[in-house]
Design a protein around this nucleic acid. Structure first.
Lengths: 204, 204
DNA sequence: TAATTATTTAACAATTTTGTTAAACAATAT
DNA sequence: ATATTGTTTAACAAAATTGTTAAATAATTA
């Protein structure tokens, strides 16, 4: 890695940290610079503007999440295993980046058009891979391996159970009266809880 | 309602609309004024500052949600019915204010200290009411009416399934390839889906 | 070592946004 | 009808923030 690439990376890491915590409007270039251990001038020497920096960070994380999910959805494993894979994939990502969902959701709420641009760019519509999953669920229902359920609700249920405790962390912490380490421990245990919850709920 | 009260209300409604869409940092006093059909000068004639306006809006919504949930949790109805009540209470609130959870979560993420102030102020800790629910779940488990489950996971599961489709609306819409009306229809159907999902998952 | 490249400093311009003010005007109440 | 209160206009001050620039300095590379 050359120095330029190293600095590039340093800045993007700092930008990720600040944007994830504060969102676009709340983030300050000054904070990003300080987090990266430098000054604003150098930031602009490497990246034209706040917007550009933000888009790089956002697109990277979003695409990673999205393509990871699609890979799993379209993979050739049995349904229960696939559900496990989705849960584990997301929870691994979230343990590493707890603020990620709040960041993505906030930007998509303020700026929903971005989604369509991003998806067109990547030339990969969710539909195709979702249909594979849809068919798989229908077949499992037909064969009586799981109860009658709409695959769209199933996938949203999975995402909900996995993602909400991270998006809603401050609320949940308060409600359960747990401090940071206890809440993290709670989330660790929860990994198994989610699996059994989901699998139980789709039993025939 | 006097004129003053009417204008007060008008401004707070406008503030609610703009803050819910844009968050604190993203909201503009100019937007709030225009939404209320007036100008910035009058806004400041009624409310000292953006912060003050925001706090009123935030506190009102948060307290409403919180005390509503606590009333239900501590009420004297059987567990399955209580779960239904929670689901319906939240979904009703969310249908009326779809942006509410994103708004609350975003502010709590940026500004977690606020929670403690708010809760101290209201003199109503979540613990007490949560313990009622906790005991109720334990009893149901003991009597074999539901499977072994930690009440904390149960309540987080309920909140997840109910709230996530609203917080994650832009993402879910894209993923399911639904337009606004179709997604709203999906959410309507989902009300029943959530109940059966939860109840199924806690069967003995 | 000389030349090139990366980084800091410090000042500044431009923009955006919040908040204030005074004066004029409109509406309402006494 | 007059006094009070509510509202608009328009200008402005203050602050915060982004982005630029030139010159000095440090680090790397040829």
């Amino acid at each position: 890695m050359t120095e330029v690439e190293a600095t590039d990376h340093l800045i993007l890491e700092a930008a990720r940290e600040v944007f994830l915590k504060k969102g676009f409007a709340g983030a300050r270039m000054e904070d990003i610079a300080k987090t990266a251990g430098m000054n604003r001038a150098l930031l602009h020497y490497y990246f034209r503007s706040k917007r550009e920096l933000f888009q790089i960070v956002f697109d990277k994380h979003f695409t990673e999440l999205q393509s990871g999910l699609q890979d799993i959805l379209s993979s050739e494993v049995i349904l229960t295993e696939k559900i496990q894979l989705i849960i584990n994939f997301y929870l691994d990502k979230l343990e590493a980046n707890p603020d990620l969902p709040a960041f993505i959701i906030q930007e998509l709420t303020v700026n929903p058009e971005r989604l369509f641009l991003l998806i067109k760019e990547k030339q990969r519509l969710p539909g195709r891979t979702r249909l594979v999953f849809e068919e798989q669920v229908r077949e499992a229902v037909r064969k009586g391996r799981i109860r009658e359920i709409d695959s769209r609700h199933l996938i949203i249920n999975i995402l909900s159970l996995v993602v909400f405790p991270y998006i809603g962390r401050p609320y949940a912490k308060m409600f359960l009266e747990l401090d940071e380490p206890s809440y993290n421990a709670f989330l660790k245990i929860r990994r198994r809880e989610i699996s059994s919850f989901i699998l139980k709920s789709i039993q025939p």
